[in-house]
Design a protein around this nucleic acid. Structure first.
Lengths: 219, 219
DNA sequence: TAGTTCCTTCAAAAGTTTTTGAAGCTTGAT
DNA sequence: ATCAAGCTTCAAAAACTTTTGAAGGAACTA
């Protein structure tokens, strides 16, 4: 975070006309606005990092999200103090995830970018892809392991303790599988609900004040 | 995964009596069992890494989870091919998260460890801590940014475009805040439900087959 | 045509995280 | 008291990730 001090600023390339010679006050409030943007973009950066993306993806996305007009790669470079290469790569990665779009501006040579503003749409797109990659492959691996244990169990000549061990593992891997499937279903349901409207889900969760029916066991 | 080849095994320190001289078949099936354990522990390792923990935490936890008896630090070291230091640190980290417990075995000098087997309990403990750290601080930061924008807006002499900009940002940061709060509520609800029983939630999500009736919120 | 702007790529540098293992500590046995 | 087993710590090394910026390319202008 040490790196903001010197990017005082504002994208002065934004509308390449009217620059300089404005009142001191306006300049000051623009600076204040930028400080606030920077702070928010760092927060999102950290949050996004926590979810397994690169921090700069969050920072770049946030600036685009908070900007009234599309920004150019160079704007972003100056505002965030990144190298040209970093901006280019971050933008293309964001584009791959579908959370940022390239925009053509009349009579401008360079490309401009805007953020996807539909947060839920964005989240569901991103998560459903990740989920596919991670959770599904875990589910498959658990299933494979279970099948293998099954085969082993049928094999002849196992001493009693090995057999007991196999049984324990079948049970436990079974639980892991169940859990992974539950996670997948939750995500799927959440995301496909979210695509339309998250409200009902939330109302359910908060409304029926948690049936504390002491039933326990995840079973 | 290249590193399993040579930890053929079985914790031969587990019951320091009866070793060697068993049938070939038993040895073979134990090896097969270990291969399967190793695979599962790697899957969990990867999954856990994806959620922001160290891979070895997942690997160690899984071995403990799949083992009928508690294991010693040295068992884990040999089985997973880690250094003494790594095992010690991983175990103490797992203990801090409350997902592994130290066990005293009669007449044994060294410590033994077992995994928490109640998966939901474990998950809710871990997530509620993380959530506090990450999501809450993001919420606070968004709130602070909004307050600041509010103050700015009340400040005198802003030109029209700056004012419009502030308004846009208030709206957008407002959305981010809303989203973060929603996330927090979801997690809270999920976890406190989970502590008792995850069923009702899942039934809700899957049962009412997602009122896709294009009107969504029964407002 | 040559010149310019902007974008992308990628090898190398910087930065970060993880792992190692030797040194030191603690505990219990002799 | 000394010794040994086992655990922990931490500085250094290795592994991995991210960032840099110069080189190259594409597309437009004059």
């Amino acid at each position: 975070m040490s790196d903001h001090a010197d990017h005082r600023g504002e994208a002065d390339s934004r509308s390449p006309g009217e620059r300089d010679g404005r009142g001191d006050r306006e300049a000051r409030s623009e600076r204040a606005l930028w400080v606030s943007e920077a702070r928010v973009s760092d927060v999102v950066g950290r949050l996004i990092e926590f979810w397994g993306f690169k921090r700069n993806m969050g920072r770049v996305w946030t600036l685009l999200y908070l900007s009234p007009e599309p920004l150019s790669a160079d704007d972003l470079r100056r505002l965030l103090g990144l190298s040209t290469g970093a901006v280019s790569m971050t933008l293309s990665e964001l584009a791959r995830w579908g959370v940022v779009r390239k925009i053509w501006v009349q009579g401008e040579r360079r490309d401009f970018y805007t953020a996807e503003v539909q947060l839920w749409r964005m989240i569901s797109r991103v998560w459903s892809e990740r989920e596919k990659i991670e959770v599904e492959s875990a589910i498959e691996a658990f299933e494979a392991a279970l099948k293998e244990l099954e085969t082993m169990r049928r094999g002849a000549s196992l001493d009693a303790s090995t057999r007991a061990r196999i049984d324990l593992q079948r049970e436990r891997i079974g639980h892991l599988l169940e859990l992974a499937r539950l996670g997948k279903k939750l995500l799927d349901a959440l995301l496909s609900t979210a695509k339309v409207d998250a409200e009902p889900l939330v109302r359910f969760l908060l409304g029926q004040r948690l049936t504390d029916t002491r039933d326990a066991s995840p079973r």
